[in-house]
């Protein structure tokens, strides 16, 4: 298997990060997008309309009044008066619609497909790469998806527990020198190297 040159991958990732911020004004978060899709589906089909969100659709004046009331309630009148001149707050940033997140994941698939086609390595397969991994699941068409599903669940659990995945922590967090992200990234890579080492040696 051949990979892109490291510098090309780095430039491409940086372009995606910056582009995401410029277009959506949000930090890149792949696992966060997945969560947003699940939340969107839950709101739509399970909880139906979210009553609280109806109140979020306010004019700037209504929003300013509502925020002022809660701010005074929490911190007192001086919290408002001490920070003059008063600037009316903008509208609450709308949630990125589920379609945007779905489009993002579609782009991931399309990008992988284009990259694979350009490299001439396009070969669809439902199996795991590597003979040792394939031997582990005994080439079973039933066990392989279950192993992948279990792996995906572990990733989902871990990213929720650490409030971010490799894109959120390693790309966005480390570049902003966030200690928690640096620690999380060290844990990601150490665990990955350790797991690979164990699998290579023991299988």
């Amino acid at each position: 298997m051949s990979y892109w040159p490291w510098w090309a991958s780095g430039l491409a990732l940086a372009a995606v990060m910056v582009g995401n911020w410029l277009l959506l004004r949000q930090m890149m978060a792949v696992s966060g997008r997945y969560t947003a899709i699940v939340d969107g589906l839950r709101r739509r089909f399970v909880e139906r309309a979210h009553d609280d969100d109806a109140d979020a659709e306010m004019t700037p004046e209504e929003l300013a009044e509502a925020v002022r009331a809660v701010t005074v309630q929490e911190f007192g009148e001086q919290a408002i008066e001490a920070r003059q001149p008063a600037v009316p707050p903008p509208l609450l940033a709308p949630r990125s619609p589920t379609a945007v997140h779905t489009l993002f994941f579609g782009g991931l698939l399309l990008g992988g497909l284009v990259s694979s086609l350009l490299a001439g390595t396009w070969a669809p397969s439902m199996g795991l790469h590597g003979e040792r991994f394939a031997a582990l699941v005994r080439h079973s068409p039933l066990v392989t998806p279950l192993v992948l599903l279990f792996g995906g669940m572990c990733i989902g659990f871990g990213t929720r527990m650490s409030t971010g995945c490799t894109s959120g922590h390693a790309l966005c967090g480390v570049s902003r020198f966030r200690p928690a992200s640096i620690l999380a990234t060290c844990a990601f890579f150490a665990t990955g190297v350790g797991a690979s080492f164990i699998l290579e040696r023991l299988l």
Binding site: H50, D52, D53, D55, A56, M58, E62, L63, E65, A66, V67, A69, V70, Q73, E74, L92, A93, P94, R95
Partner: peptide
Amino acid sequence: PVNLMPNGALLKKK
């Protein structure tokens, strides 16, 4: 909720 404040209050229209 998009209109949930950090202290738990919900921003509501007057």
